[in-house]
Design a protein around this nucleic acid. Structure first.
Lengths: 155, 155
DNA sequence: TATTGTTATACTCTATAACTATA
DNA sequence: TATAGTTATAGAGTATAACAATA
């Protein structure tokens, strides 16, 4: 294997205890995904969080803001700007819920559905790119391990 | 298994396509680690990034700022405040490098070494807590899978 | 000409508290 | 009394561009 870079992953610099902490590797890997996600979706105007909201709204028509937020780990207060943005882009339709007049029922517009599908294509390519060194069963294993950690009670 | 929460991980809300994206699960898991890390180190004043810097400086005495940053994926510009903070807390000693008068040589002070060791203990408990549902070989597998993704060329 | 550290700046994401209107 | 959505605000983390000193 050719070693061309002056300062690659093995540049002689030690990570110290960091090397054995899952949290460190999660942080770096997650950051690499976030950066490549942004690159992959440039032009669409979408980002990780708004895309996640589109996905959950698409899968749960007439869901309300708070529940989307709790599902994705986003605070109520921070949902407001996200939903306003998506409504402003005509990707999400928001109307007062008939069951609870405090709440909004959210749905994707046709444009929102198109945007979701366009992004899904780009994100699939992005994931293939970042995961290209792993076999399919390794990717499954990774996702399952992550889900078992995520799912833990937040105490 | 008792189901007491009204709205647990399985609250009937669907994630949609998100469910199959490694990037989503990395993001959520990494966020869970970050939040618990902050809780675990409350009182020490340490955060994920400054701790990572302490670890790298400890493992590479007389390393300079730029190399620490490149190792950890932190921009030069953003390293300045971090190092200033650590020097201000008397955790890191900074002196002009004898090999390159533009650069600083960084080392841990005795206080810095004590802080590092104190944090390591707390972080180990934090990792045990978050990873308690996984067997040791599963944790190893997770870390190895993450390292294989991290290590990819950033293109 | 390139690199080290620096300043200034801006944007995203996240967290908290307090408010309103409904339940 | 609790909940849905809102506003305001603050703090991290991250990104870019431009500068001085040194290589």
């Amino acid at each position: 294997m050719a070693r061309l870079s002056q300062e690659g992953p093995d540049s002689g610099v030690e990570l110290g205890v960091l090397k054995d902490f899952a949290g460190y590797h999660l942080r770096r890997t997650s950051a690499a995904f976030a950066a490549d996600f942004a690159r992959a979706l440039v032009g669409t105007g979408m980002r990780q969080v708004p895309f996640a909201v589109l996905s959950v709204v698409a899968a749960n028509p007439d869901i309300n803001q708070g529940l989307v937020g709790r599902t994705l780990g986003i605070q109520r207060a921070n949902m407001v700007a996200i939903i306003n943005e998506l409504v402003g882009l005509n990707l999400v339709e928001r109307e007062v819920s008939r069951e609870d007049r405090r709440a909004f029922a959210l749905r994707l517009s046709n444009t929102g559905t198109e945007m979701l599908n366009k992004c899904i294509g780009l994100i699939c390519l992005h994931e293939e790119r970042l995961l290209s060194d792993l076999a399919d069963d390794e990717i499954d294993m990774l996702i399952h391990l992550l889900m078992r950690i995520e799912t833990r009670e937040q105490s």
